Simulated scan of single mutants.
Amino acid sequence: MSIIEDFLRYSRQMNLPEIGDLGQEKLKKAKVLVIGAGGLGCPILQYIATAGVGTIGIIDFDVIELHNLHRQILYIEDQVGLSKVTTAKAVLEKLNPLIAITAIEEKLMIENATKIIDGYDIVVDGSDNFATRYLVNDTCVLLGKTLIYGSILGFEGQLAVFNHNGSKNLRHVFPEPPNPKEVPNCNLNGVLGTLPGMIGMMMAHETLKIILGLPTLRNELILFSTLNWSFTKLNF
Protein backbone atom coordinates (compact mmCIF):
# COMPACT_ATOMS: atom_id res chain seq x y z
CA MET A 1 0.00 0.00 0.00
CA SER A 2 1.41 3.39 -0.96
CA ILE A 3 1.69 6.45 1.28
CA ILE A 4 -1.03 8.10 -0.82
CA GLU A 5 -3.41 5.16 -0.32
CA ASP A 6 -2.64 5.23 3.40
CA PHE A 7 -3.49 8.89 3.62
CA LEU A 8 -6.67 8.63 1.55
CA ARG A 9 -8.03 5.89 3.80
CA TYR A 10 -6.78 7.06 7.19
CA SER A 11 -6.37 10.82 6.75
CA ARG A 12 -8.93 11.84 9.37
CA GLN A 13 -7.00 10.09 12.12
CA MET A 14 -3.56 10.78 10.63
CA ASN A 15 -4.35 14.49 10.80
CA LEU A 16 -4.27 14.21 14.59
CA PRO A 17 -0.82 15.33 15.81
CA GLU A 18 -0.80 12.38 18.22
CA ILE A 19 -1.00 9.94 15.28
CA GLY A 20 0.39 11.20 11.98
CA ASP A 21 2.45 9.00 9.67
CA LEU A 22 4.41 7.34 12.46
CA GLY A 23 1.28 6.42 14.41
CA GLN A 24 -0.38 4.94 11.37
CA GLU A 25 2.73 2.85 10.77
CA LYS A 26 2.49 1.59 14.37
CA LEU A 27 -1.11 0.53 13.72
CA LYS A 28 -0.10 -1.24 10.52
CA LYS A 29 2.61 -3.23 12.33
CA ALA A 30 0.44 -4.15 15.33
CA LYS A 31 -0.81 -7.69 15.92
CA VAL A 32 -4.05 -7.90 17.90
CA LEU A 33 -5.98 -11.00 18.96
CA VAL A 34 -9.71 -10.61 19.71
CA ILE A 35 -11.23 -13.28 21.92
CA GLY A 36 -14.83 -13.80 20.87
CA ALA A 37 -16.74 -12.55 17.83
CA GLY A 38 -19.96 -11.78 19.70
CA GLY A 39 -21.53 -8.70 21.26
CA LEU A 40 -18.24 -7.12 22.34
CA GLY A 41 -16.11 -8.66 19.62
CA CYS A 42 -18.14 -7.24 16.73
CA PRO A 43 -17.58 -3.52 17.48
CA ILE A 44 -14.01 -4.17 18.63
CA LEU A 45 -13.23 -5.86 15.33
CA GLN A 46 -14.95 -3.26 13.19
CA TYR A 47 -13.11 -0.33 14.72
CA ILE A 48 -9.61 -1.79 14.94
CA ALA A 49 -9.93 -3.12 11.38
CA THR A 50 -11.08 0.17 9.89
CA ALA A 51 -8.40 2.04 11.88
CA GLY A 52 -5.76 -0.01 10.06
CA VAL A 53 -4.48 -2.50 12.63
CA GLY A 54 -2.37 -4.59 10.28
CA THR A 55 -2.77 -8.10 11.71
CA ILE A 56 -5.93 -9.23 13.49
CA GLY A 57 -6.73 -12.68 14.85
CA ILE A 58 -10.25 -13.73 15.80
CA ILE A 59 -10.94 -16.79 17.91
CA ASP A 60 -14.46 -18.17 18.43
CA PHE A 61 -15.98 -21.61 18.00
CA ASP A 62 -19.64 -20.53 17.91
CA VAL A 63 -22.12 -20.14 15.07
CA ILE A 64 -24.46 -17.23 14.37
CA GLU A 65 -27.91 -17.56 15.94
CA LEU A 66 -31.02 -15.48 15.44
CA HIS A 67 -30.93 -14.08 18.97
CA ASN A 68 -27.41 -12.72 18.31
CA LEU A 69 -28.53 -10.27 15.66
CA HIS A 70 -29.87 -7.49 17.90
CA ARG A 71 -26.34 -6.77 19.17
CA GLN A 72 -23.80 -8.62 16.99
CA ILE A 73 -23.90 -6.21 14.11
CA LEU A 74 -21.35 -7.86 11.82
CA TYR A 75 -23.98 -10.45 10.92
CA ILE A 76 -27.32 -10.61 9.09
CA GLU A 77 -30.20 -13.09 9.17
CA ASP A 78 -29.08 -14.92 6.03
CA GLN A 79 -25.91 -15.93 7.90
CA VAL A 80 -27.66 -17.71 10.79
CA GLY A 81 -26.00 -21.09 11.26
CA LEU A 82 -22.66 -20.01 9.78
CA SER A 83 -19.37 -19.79 11.66
CA LYS A 84 -18.90 -16.47 13.43
CA VAL A 85 -15.16 -16.21 12.80
CA THR A 86 -15.25 -17.03 9.09
CA THR A 87 -18.21 -14.70 8.58
CA ALA A 88 -16.56 -11.91 10.57
CA LYS A 89 -13.34 -12.34 8.57
CA ALA A 90 -15.22 -12.01 5.28
CA VAL A 91 -17.06 -8.88 6.41
CA LEU A 92 -13.94 -7.23 7.81
CA GLU A 93 -11.97 -7.93 4.64
CA LYS A 94 -14.62 -5.98 2.73
CA LEU A 95 -14.41 -3.13 5.25
CA ASN A 96 -10.64 -2.97 4.90
CA PRO A 97 -8.95 -5.20 2.30
CA LEU A 98 -5.51 -3.83 3.22
CA ILE A 99 -5.08 -5.76 6.49
CA ALA A 100 -4.47 -9.43 7.34
CA ILE A 101 -7.15 -11.31 9.28
CA THR A 102 -6.87 -14.82 10.67
CA ALA A 103 -9.99 -16.74 11.68
CA ILE A 104 -9.36 -19.30 14.43
CA GLU A 105 -12.42 -21.52 14.73
CA GLU A 106 -11.50 -23.16 18.01
CA LYS A 107 -12.46 -23.02 21.64
CA LEU A 108 -9.74 -21.34 23.68
CA MET A 109 -8.54 -23.91 26.21
CA ILE A 110 -5.55 -24.57 28.44
CA GLU A 111 -4.14 -26.84 25.74
CA ASN A 112 -4.04 -24.18 22.99
CA ALA A 113 -4.09 -20.81 24.76
CA THR A 114 -0.34 -20.27 24.96
CA LYS A 115 0.29 -21.18 21.32
CA ILE A 116 -2.52 -18.96 20.02
CA ILE A 117 -1.93 -15.91 22.22
CA ASP A 118 1.85 -15.94 21.80
CA GLY A 119 1.55 -14.84 18.16
CA TYR A 120 0.06 -11.44 19.04
CA ASP A 121 1.18 -8.23 20.78
CA ILE A 122 -2.14 -7.29 22.38
CA VAL A 123 -5.14 -9.37 23.44
CA VAL A 124 -8.67 -7.96 23.61
CA ASP A 125 -11.01 -10.17 25.61
CA GLY A 126 -14.61 -10.05 24.44
CA SER A 127 -15.50 -13.43 25.96
CA ASP A 128 -18.68 -13.93 27.98
CA ASN A 129 -17.65 -16.33 30.75
CA PHE A 130 -15.30 -16.27 33.71
CA ALA A 131 -13.44 -19.46 32.84
CA THR A 132 -12.23 -17.95 29.56
CA ARG A 133 -11.48 -14.56 31.13
CA TYR A 134 -9.21 -16.08 33.76
CA LEU A 135 -7.54 -18.36 31.23
CA VAL A 136 -6.86 -15.38 28.96
CA ASN A 137 -5.59 -13.28 31.86
CA ASP A 138 -3.27 -15.94 33.23
CA THR A 139 -1.88 -16.72 29.78
CA CYS A 140 -1.24 -13.03 29.10
CA VAL A 141 0.60 -12.75 32.42
CA LEU A 142 2.68 -15.83 31.57
CA LEU A 143 3.58 -14.47 28.13
CA GLY A 144 3.86 -10.81 29.07
CA LYS A 145 1.02 -9.70 26.79
CA THR A 146 -1.12 -6.60 27.27
CA LEU A 147 -4.80 -7.41 27.88
CA ILE A 148 -7.83 -5.19 27.34
CA TYR A 149 -10.71 -6.44 29.48
CA GLY A 150 -14.41 -5.68 29.16
CA SER A 151 -17.64 -7.16 30.45
CA ILE A 152 -21.33 -6.34 30.20
CA LEU A 153 -24.62 -7.20 31.89
CA GLY A 154 -27.99 -5.54 31.61
CA PHE A 155 -27.26 -1.81 31.39
CA GLU A 156 -23.79 -1.93 32.94
CA GLY A 157 -20.29 -2.47 31.64
CA GLN A 158 -16.72 -2.69 32.91
CA LEU A 159 -13.42 -1.79 31.25
CA ALA A 160 -9.77 -2.19 32.27
CA VAL A 161 -6.29 -2.63 30.84
CA PHE A 162 -4.26 -5.39 32.47
CA ASN A 163 -0.62 -6.45 32.40
CA HIS A 164 0.55 -3.43 30.41
CA ASN A 165 4.09 -2.20 31.06
CA GLY A 166 4.15 -3.78 34.50
CA SER A 167 0.60 -2.93 35.53
CA LYS A 168 -1.60 -5.27 37.55
CA ASN A 169 -3.85 -8.00 36.16
CA LEU A 170 -7.35 -9.40 36.62
CA ARG A 171 -6.43 -11.39 39.72
CA HIS A 172 -5.40 -8.21 41.53
CA VAL A 173 -9.02 -7.06 41.20
CA PHE A 174 -10.83 -10.39 41.47
CA PRO A 175 -8.37 -13.00 42.85
CA GLU A 176 -10.58 -15.98 42.04
CA PRO A 177 -13.50 -16.55 39.65
CA PRO A 178 -16.93 -16.61 41.29
CA ASN A 179 -18.98 -19.74 41.75
CA PRO A 180 -20.59 -20.39 38.32
CA LYS A 181 -23.93 -21.04 40.02
CA GLU A 182 -23.91 -17.51 41.47
CA VAL A 183 -23.00 -15.69 38.27
CA PRO A 184 -25.79 -13.94 36.31
CA ASN A 185 -25.54 -14.15 32.53
CA CYS A 186 -27.03 -12.46 29.51
CA ASN A 187 -28.95 -15.59 28.50
CA LEU A 188 -31.10 -15.34 31.62
CA ASN A 189 -30.84 -11.66 32.56
CA GLY A 190 -30.66 -10.05 29.15
CA VAL A 191 -28.72 -7.14 27.68
CA LEU A 192 -29.77 -4.11 25.66
CA GLY A 193 -28.16 -4.37 22.25
CA THR A 194 -26.48 -0.95 22.33
CA LEU A 195 -24.52 -1.70 25.53
CA PRO A 196 -21.95 -4.10 24.02
CA GLY A 197 -21.56 -1.60 21.18
CA MET A 198 -20.54 1.12 23.64
CA ILE A 199 -18.24 -1.02 25.76
CA GLY A 200 -16.77 -2.70 22.68
CA MET A 201 -15.94 0.70 21.17
CA MET A 202 -14.30 1.75 24.44
CA MET A 203 -12.21 -1.44 24.35
CA ALA A 204 -11.24 -0.75 20.74
CA HIS A 205 -10.34 2.84 21.67
CA GLU A 206 -8.01 1.67 24.46
CA THR A 207 -6.45 -0.86 22.08
CA LEU A 208 -5.65 1.83 19.54
CA LYS A 209 -4.26 4.15 22.23
CA ILE A 210 -1.96 1.41 23.52
CA ILE A 211 -0.63 0.76 20.01
CA LEU A 212 -0.07 4.47 19.49
CA GLY A 213 1.64 4.95 22.85
CA LEU A 214 -1.04 7.33 24.16
CA PRO A 215 -2.16 7.55 27.81
CA THR A 216 -4.34 4.60 28.79
CA LEU A 217 -5.94 3.05 31.85
CA ARG A 218 -3.42 1.83 34.43
CA ASN A 219 -4.53 -0.10 37.52
CA GLU A 220 -7.99 1.38 37.06
CA LEU A 221 -11.37 -0.30 36.58
CA ILE A 222 -14.15 1.66 34.90
CA LEU A 223 -17.71 0.90 35.97
CA PHE A 224 -20.18 2.36 33.49
CA SER A 225 -23.95 2.37 34.04
CA THR A 226 -25.84 3.43 30.94
CA LEU A 227 -29.19 3.46 32.73
CA ASN A 228 -28.38 6.64 34.63
CA TRP A 229 -25.06 7.51 32.91
CA SER A 230 -22.92 7.04 36.00
CA PHE A 231 -19.23 6.61 35.35
CA THR A 232 -16.98 5.41 38.15
CA LYS A 233 -13.22 4.81 38.02
CA LEU A 234 -11.80 2.58 40.73
CA ASN A 235 -8.09 2.29 41.50
CA PHE A 236 -6.66 -1.12 42.39
Rank of each mutant, 00 (worst) to 15 (best):
A30V: 03
L16I: 12
I117S: 11
V85P: 03
L27K: 13
E65F: 02
I122L: 15
G36T: 01
Y10W: 13
K29W: 00
L27M: 11
A37E: 06
I101E: 05
T55M: 11
L22V: 12
Q13G: 08
Y10A: 12
G57Q: 07
G52W: 06
I58H: 11
R133F: 03
K31C: 09
A51H: 06
I64D: 09
F7V: 04
L22D: 14
N137W: 05
V80D: 02
D78Y: 01
C42D: 01
G81Q: 06
S2R: 07
I3P: 00
L27V: 07
V85I: 03
D125M: 07
V53R: 08
N129D: 14
G57L: 08
G52A: 09
T86C: 03
R9V: 01
A51I: 06
S2N: 14
A113T: 01
A51G: 10
N112Q: 11
V80L: 08
V63R: 15
M109K: 14
G126L: 04
Y75P: 01
A30H: 09
L33Y: 05
K28F: 12
H70N: 15
Y134K: 12
I44Y: 07
R9W: 03
F7Y: 15
V85W: 08
L40K: 06
Y120E: 07
G119L: 13
Q79F: 00
T87M: 05
K115T: 07
D138I: 07
K26Y: 02
E105I: 01
L98V: 00
I99M: 09
V53Y: 11
A30L: 11
K94W: 00
G20C: 11
Q72T: 01
D78N: 14
L45E: 08
L135S: 06
I56W: 12
T146D: 10
G23H: 09
L92N: 04
Y75K: 09
G119Y: 04
L135I: 03
K107S: 03
D138P: 05
T50H: 02
R12N: 10
T86F: 14
I104K: 13
E25Q: 15
P43H: 06
T139L: 13
R133Y: 01
G39Q: 07
Q46N: 04
G36K: 08
S127P: 03
F130V: 03
G126V: 02
T87W: 05
I101R: 12
A103E: 03
K145I: 02
A100W: 00
K107P: 00
V85C: 11
A113P: 02
T102E: 15
L95F: 14
A100S: 15
Q72Y: 04
A113Q: 04
P17D: 12
G52P: 05
T139K: 12
L8D: 10
K26T: 02
G54V: 05
Y75M: 05
I76G: 04
N68M: 06
H67V: 00
E65C: 13
L147Y: 06
I99H: 05
D78R: 12
N137V: 03
V123N: 13
L95V: 00
G20D: 10
L98S: 13
L8G: 02
I4Q: 12
D21G: 02
L22A: 15
T55V: 08
Y134D: 04
C140V: 02
K89D: 01
T50Y: 02
A103L: 08
K115S: 14
I59G: 10
Q72A: 11
T114P: 00
K94P: 00
G144Q: 10
I99P: 02
R9E: 09
